[in-house]
Simulated scan of single mutants.
Amino acid sequence: MATMQDSSATQVSSAVMTHPRRRERAEGLARRLGLDAVVVDPSPDEAPSALRTAVRAWQAIGPGASHHLVVQDDVSASAGFLSQVAGAVAGHPTEALAFYTHWNSRNGAAVRLAALAGAAWVRGVPEEFTPTQAVCLPAAQAEAFHRYARGSTEVHDDEILSELLRRAGRMSLLAVPNVVEHLDTDSISGHAWHGVRRSACLVDAAGVGDLLGSGRVLESVDCLPYMRRGAAHLRVEGPDGVLGTRGHARWRDALPATGLAPEQLRELVRGHRPADTAAAVARHFGAPYADELWIHCLLLGWRAACLAPRFAPPAGQDPLGGLGERIRDTAVSTIGVGGLPPDVRHLVPSDGSRLLTEYAWTGVRAGRTLAGPAPRSTRSAAAPAPAGHTTLRP
């Protein structure tokens, strides 16, 4: 068994799960990353089921291993991936650890929020699937997964893992700098309709392993701005502290629960949204998307600024160290493209992606001002917008 070992004798065994038609790719991935085993779908002629193969992959834990890592065959990672996993496991030995998040999911949005706030990890959203492209579990939890899942009629391993974690009352930790990317491949499980499924915050750089081992955790995301189907949404927990549903609330409907007033947002739209950039985004991606994206980024910037004091180190230091700027830039760069409908994401050219990133940053920066004392309005809601800015009605 090829294992990763630290001073505490932590040992991590590993496997890549695959289908016979992609076995060659899986074997190449295992060689490049130094993974222990390749686990193939035991019934490839039956209806597609990621869970069927996952059960076998989680059973492939090595003798004496304290943790087990399972990677799917349609991902890429750097040659230092196992060292990054080792650092993460050493820092969080009792946690389920996920090293990838989908850029158009609530978990991906949570990763961006944590990145802007200064956290290296964030607790997964309980009502959403757990991204299983690359997950490491403590040995006892890996064994619990295959016992729990082997009798299920579910076909999605990510749903079953979330179900198991919810029952335990502790969702996975999501790496804020994702270290695994999802590749554009044919979808054996029928997920092609999701379109391009990139990482929310892929950062491959020296020092990531250390950060994942020592960086702090954002434990609670009780107010989460996220994009869904091209529209801004808000996940806000109720008075009892439990959301407990898979429902989605548009930002207008959820705003009263945040303590923000619509007029505060209108003021920022009138005073901070750049008309030229907004017009360019509207021209290429539609005016409704330009409006919704900016409001999302504004709420994201606000919420991140509210959380940032929790992670603030001594004056002048970045809570994410030398990788902080890169992590934040990467997180913001995936908002615009990731929030588009699945059938158009792959059509966005590089200059379109840069435009969306520039636009997203203007919203994030404007939203940060909401974390301080609410500014007093100097104009009525009907007052004209300043020259050079676009009017948006929240």
Rank of each mutant, 00 (worst) to 15 (best):
M4C: 13
Q11T: 15
V12G: 10
S14R: 06
S14W: 05
M17R: 15
T18K: 08
E27C: 06
L29S: 05
L29E: 08
G34V: 12
V39N: 00
L51K: 05
A54E: 13
W58Y: 14
Q59N: 13
I61R: 11
H67E: 15
H67L: 09
H68Q: 12
H68V: 13
V70E: 04
V71R: 10
Q72S: 11
A77K: 10
A77R: 10
G80E: 03
S83L: 05
S83E: 14
H92G: 04
L97H: 07
A98Q: 01
S105I: 02
G108C: 02
A120Y: 00
R123E: 04
R123G: 01
F129T: 09
Q133S: 10
C136L: 12
L137A: 03
V155I: 11
I160Q: 06
I160F: 03
L164R: 00
L164T: 00
S172I: 00
L174V: 02
N178H: 07
N178V: 05
E181S: 11
T185R: 15
S187T: 10
I188G: 05
S189Y: 04
S189P: 00
H194R: 15
C201T: 05
V203W: 06
A205K: 06
G209L: 05
L211Q: 06
L212S: 04
G213H: 08
S214V: 08
L218I: 02
C223L: 14
C223G: 07
M227T: 07
A232R: 05
L234S: 02
V236N: 05
G238T: 10
D240Y: 13
L243G: 07
T245E: 09
W251V: 10
P256E: 15
G259Q: 13
L260F: 11
Q264F: 01
R266T: 03
L268H: 13
D276F: 15
A278R: 00
R283H: 11
F285E: 01
G286L: 15
A287M: 11
A287V: 15
P288S: 08
L293E: 00
W294Y: 08
W294K: 14
H296N: 14
P309K: 14
P309M: 14
F311A: 02
P314H: 10
A315I: 13
A315M: 07
G322M: 04
D329H: 12
S333K: 11
T334H: 07
R345N: 11
L347F: 09
V348F: 08
P349T: 12
R354D: 15
R354Y: 06
L356V: 02
T357V: 10
T362S: 15
G363N: 07
G363W: 00
T369D: 15
P375C: 12
P375N: 12
R376Q: 12
S377Y: 05
S377M: 11
S380F: 08
A381M: 12
A382P: 05
A383G: 11
A383E: 14
T390Y: 10
P394D: 04
